[in-house]
Write a protein that binds this DNA or RNA. Sequence first.
DNA 1: GTTAGCACTCGTCGAGAGTGAGTGCTAACA
DNA 2: TGTTAGCACTCACTCTCGACGAGTGCTAAC
Lengths: 348, 348
Amino acid sequence: MLNDRKFKILQAIVNDYIETAEPVGSRTIAKKYGLGVSSATIRNEMSDLEDLGLISQLHSSSGRVPSSKGYRFYVDSMMQSPALAEEEALLLQRMLIENIRQSEYMMQETAKALSRLTNYPAIVSEPYLKKTAIKHIQLVPLDEKSILLVLVTDTKTVKNQVVNLSAAPGYDVLTKLSALLNRRLSGLSIREISRECIDKMLAEFGEHAHVLMPILGITADMIQAEDDVRVYTSGVKNILTFPEFSDKAKAEQIFHALEDRASLFEILGTPKASGIQIIIGEENALDLLKSCSLIKANYTIDNQGTGCIALIGPMRMDYAQAVSVLSGVLQNIRHVMDALGLRNGGTD
Amino acid sequence: MLNDRKFKILQAIVNDYIETAEPVGSRTIAKKYGLGVSSATIRNEMSDLEDLGLISQLHSSSGRVPSSKGYRFYVDSMMQSPALAEEEALLLQRMLIENIRQSEYMMQETAKALSRLTNYPAIVSEPYLKKTAIKHIQLVPLDEKSILLVLVTDTKTVKNQVVNLSAAPGYDVLTKLSALLNRRLSGLSIREISRECIDKMLAEFGEHAHVLMPILGITADMIQAEDDVRVYTSGVKNILTFPEFSDKAKAEQIFHALEDRASLFEILGTPKASGIQIIIGEENALDLLKSCSLIKANYTIDNQGTGCIALIGPMRMDYAQAVSVLSGVLQNIRHVMDALGLRNGGTD
DNA sequence: GTTAGCACTCGTCGAGAGTGAGTGCTAACA
DNA sequence: TGTTAGCACTCACTCTCGACGAGTGCTAAC
């Protein structure tokens, strides 16, 4: 499609613009990127590149800026994202592997790691479509009127919730009740708890039957909440450092979008493609993001479902570095999941 | 100190400036606040107010702006903060009381409520100086190699942590061990766990002695972490909406400060005075906040220690409303703590 | 095909004029 | 003596205009 020189010139324009956020002129390229030709020649080539729609001018005497199509070409054909530098990889490992001892922290820590390493806002969503099942239930005494319900799910997520009762049973009773609940409910998802099963338990509970209903109700709520996909962000404040968001109103819009669960899911879209996807400027479905780029990847946990990790930046974001970090993080997610025993299949 | 007219004029200046963020001129006051005198008279009075240091001009032909001293006077002598409107009070109640079933959520929810009701960034710190004691320990089976340690402290905070072992004991053993741990450790703070006590437990643990040490270690870590005062923020993005922070660099500085634990504590200072304190502009010790105001209040949990809730805004923040909300929140904290059984004494 | 030269474009910056909001002072009035 | 109308003055803000310069496209020569 492009001859070698045009290729190099486009590459120079994209790289320079990513670095400086200033339109790139022909003289800059001639001086800084030493292609062995004069600026006039470069001007001619740039004119051709503009005809191809790969770069554009803000006004007739400004330098050139890559267009969405130009970035697309850059990303598809000439970007090489190096493997993470050793120190970065190490930092990542420390951040993730050492911080994550429980799966519910994985998303948050992953988001943190992504944004710290790239200085772009990061979004991480949990896998969905899973149907959480009960792995273990434990009742713990708190005081005269309340007990603590600890729930461990099959995805190794731990939740706890205080249950208020008119009179809480003592420790020994709670231990017995815990055992009973486990025997009856362990391995079941919320839909599998039948009326019959509840009736049997009520009978077995005997005098303590009155505590069963609130406990079951709260357990159901907790699992339901667990089935809701959670989504985390980190490093949102970084958008303030991008010159393209010096318009405060724009920055605030994005702030809002990144705070709102619903719009986060809109941004992430439905995960279908696998691998790392780069969505540039106008390719975004959301108007709000038409001046931004989105780099995202899906990851699969077992056959539980697919989650998404993503970075948001200006169109001139450092795609190469962002992709490096993203794939590094993906790899680390695999490690963490292996360590937590949550993975059989592969991640995309 | 001030005659009635000067008083009213100062009040008009402060109110108008809080509302519009524009310097207030004599004609504006004459028209809008109908004091029955001409703008010339008001000019004379304003000149006097300026001599008193209560208002100031940015330049010789601009309107007047309240000085720190002016705000101080306003806050001390003429501000009346109405009780919360019914709908606000209700909203607050829904936000707090319904969301808080465990004490560890109280701070976060309180911060959220504060910032939502005021549109100012909120900071909430936990009480400190407490020495957390163990109330209950429960070991829960997870899988072959790990168990879950659930710790309930005397402040009713629930923490859990996965403990990895080479081979995890089964459910029955864990139940027995839990009982043993509770008998020995319940009511003790970290310092009170003696060598002797540990030795006795090791003996009693018998063949399962090897799981004791990691459990004790992690328990100690958890209590230690619990003794660290936590601090939460909410609504930080609101600073973007204040015209006084249109300087992006300034906004970012504050963003940073509100993200950093250490600087948050610097902002809050050491809680000594009780009641709601208002710190205006230059009265702030921190340079960063010399153009901001801080409204804060301390609350005491039992005799555990004192925490702090605070709002940050521009100097022309709506003190009356902020104070209303803050005292409403304080009251609700009392309710929540009563509901959680954490309060004997009063809150300041 | 490449390049030097040149005219042209257009955003940016700074100076200068006009505008208007606001002030302080003064003199007159009740 | 307090209040007010009138007026000169100040100064931020806006607009315009010219100079400047970075950058372009075109042309002619190599």
